[in-house]
């Protein structure tokens, strides 16, 4: 019961912060779609080509989630460590997993307005350009895989934040790296083989994006994904990353409690 109440309180707090920061959301709802259109323009040598709009849209939606889940959770966690408020959350019977999970759910919800803005912009642009606008319910599976895998990544980054001071550089770098090497803008098949291999192995959004493209662009089903490492890996990778996240977070949290770095004010 404590877990459920704490989790719900954490989600509610995240949403209150979302409401308080509505200006930032509004700015993102404008800049992310603009960024998406600019990328397509650059890739299409100054033209919004219909054959680029949909694949880049899929990558951009995934990138929106990873951006929100990693940045929102990481910065709020770092802020709580530096202000000392995180210690207060440890003075409760609540396991820290409930707090992290609540933060993640709030971050996923927080990503929805921006992701919707990107989707709507993409849909309008595709319609205007006369391209197809396919939908397949199977998309939910890779989308869920992306969200879950990103939770694992955020757990790892939060754990590192508890122990190391200057982790924000790694966080920023990781999001940029995923944007470039995660297959969001350029399909993994077009990247050098070693990079494509590492991306499929380690980047939480890479198998999901490949699967979404296979389903929507190629018309394939989940069981016959032609690119990447198939449905098994699509499901296994986020689970493995999340498991690694849980194990690492617990270890780093324990280390932080030994070193006294749960707060750094």
């Amino acid at each position: 019961m404590t877990f459920a109440r704490g989790f719900a309180a954490e989600v509610r707090k995240g949403l209150l912060n979302l409401l308080a920061g509505w200006r930032q959301v509004l700015v993102q709802m404008i800049t992310f779609p603009l960024f998406y259109l600019l990328i397509v323009l650059f890739m299409g040598r100054g033209q919004l080509r219909a054959d680029l709009l949909l694949p880049v849209l899929l990558g951009m939606v995934a990138l929106t989630f990873i951006h929100e889940q990693v940045n929102r959770v990481f910065w709020s966690y770092l802020g709580d460590i530096q202000s000392g408020v995180l210690e207060q959350t440890y003075l409760t019977p609540l396991p820290s997993a409930a707090s992290i999970l609540g933060r993640q759910v709030a971050a996923v919800i927080s990503a929805v307005p921006t992701a919707l803005a990107v989707l709507v912009t993409g849909a309008v642009a595709i319609t205007v350009q006369g391209g197809p606008l396919p939908f397949d319910a199977q998309m939910i599976v890779p989308l869920a895989a992306i969200v879950l895998g990103t939770c694992g990544l955020a757990l790892i980054l939060c754990g590192l934040t508890l122990v190391f001071k200057r982790i924000e550089i790694i966080t920023q770098l990781s999001v940029a790296l995923y944007a470039i090497a995660g297959g969001t803008l350029v399909p993994l098949a077009a990247l050098p083989d070693p990079i494509a291999f590492l991306s499929r192995l380690l980047v939480p959004i890479a198998p999901g994006i490949e699967a979404m493209r296979d389903i929507l662009l190629g018309g394939h089903s989940l069981t016959t994904l032609p690119t990447g490492w198939g449905l098994g890996w699509l499901l296994a990778q986020p689970l493995l990353i999340t498991t690694a996240g849980v194990v690492l977070f617990n270890r780093l949290e324990n280390l932080a409690r030994h070193r006294g770095t749960l707060a750094r004010y």
Binding site: T2, R5, A9, E10, R12, K13, T92, P93, L94, S99
Partner: peptide
């Protein structure tokens, strides 16, 4: 909001 948040975290 602070009191509601921390109260819920305490399991109340």
């Amino acid at each position: 909001q602070n009191l509601m948040y921390f109260g819920r975290l305490k399991g109340l």
